[in-house]
């Protein structure tokens, strides 16, 4: 038996019929073709599936689709696009913070969740917040640099704490 839900995804209200045992990650990827969030482990250990739920970073593999009913979900696709990148996306580009790119959407969304909560994080804050987002390629240095740069850029633009 499916359940009717209404979720605001990247600003668009979506009315969907979901299975009770369907994950938010599955719903985003299979029903809405938002494949930016990745399945890396399906047990909340890798962070590749992180999206924002009401502005907070969550592992979408551990959230049921029905649990998102009436709430707002932001995925990497809702963040920015060519010509209008979010400062975090811009900073990831400029700091060579991307290699294979598989972890990048989750990494960026976790960083965004952090900046929503703490617009001026220290390096230790960033390392701690990103510690549940695994990256096998970069060694993290350039990712941390990028998040710091984005925080500075958002602060300078007076956008810190802005919730997309």
């Amino acid at each position: 038996m499916t359940i009717a839900i209404q979720v605001t995804v990247n600003g668009q209200l979506e009315a969907l019929e979901v299975e009770p045992h369907e994950s938010l990650l599955g719903m985003l990827r299979e029903r809405l073709d938002l494949t930016g969030a990745k399945e890396g482990c399906n047990e909340g250990e890798c962070g590749a599936c992180v999206v924002l739920l009401d502005g907070r970073a969550v592992n979408s593999c551990l959230v049921l689709a029905v649990e998102a009913n009436g709430r707002a979900v932001t995925t990497i696709e809702g963040l920015g696009h060519a010509g209008a990148l979010h400062p975090l996306q811009q900073a990831f580009l400029e700091h060579s913070a991307v290699q294979c790119g598989f972890c990048s959407p989750g990494m960026i969304m976790t960083a965004l969740g952090l900046l929503n909560e703490n617009p001026t994080p220290s390096e230790a804050d960033i390392r701690q917040a990103l510690s549940g987002n695994l990256c096998r390629c970069t060694g993290y240095r350039q990712i941390i640099d990028a998040v710091q740069a984005a925080a500075a850029a958002l602060g300078a633009a007076g956008q810190a704490g802005r919730r997309p």
Binding site: G44, R56, A57, V58, N59, G113, G132, N133
Partner: peptide, 9 residues
């Protein structure tokens, strides 16, 4: 406990 995103849930 757990990671930053995990603690949100």
């Amino acid at each position: 406990l757990g990671s930053y995103p995990l603690r949100q849930r």
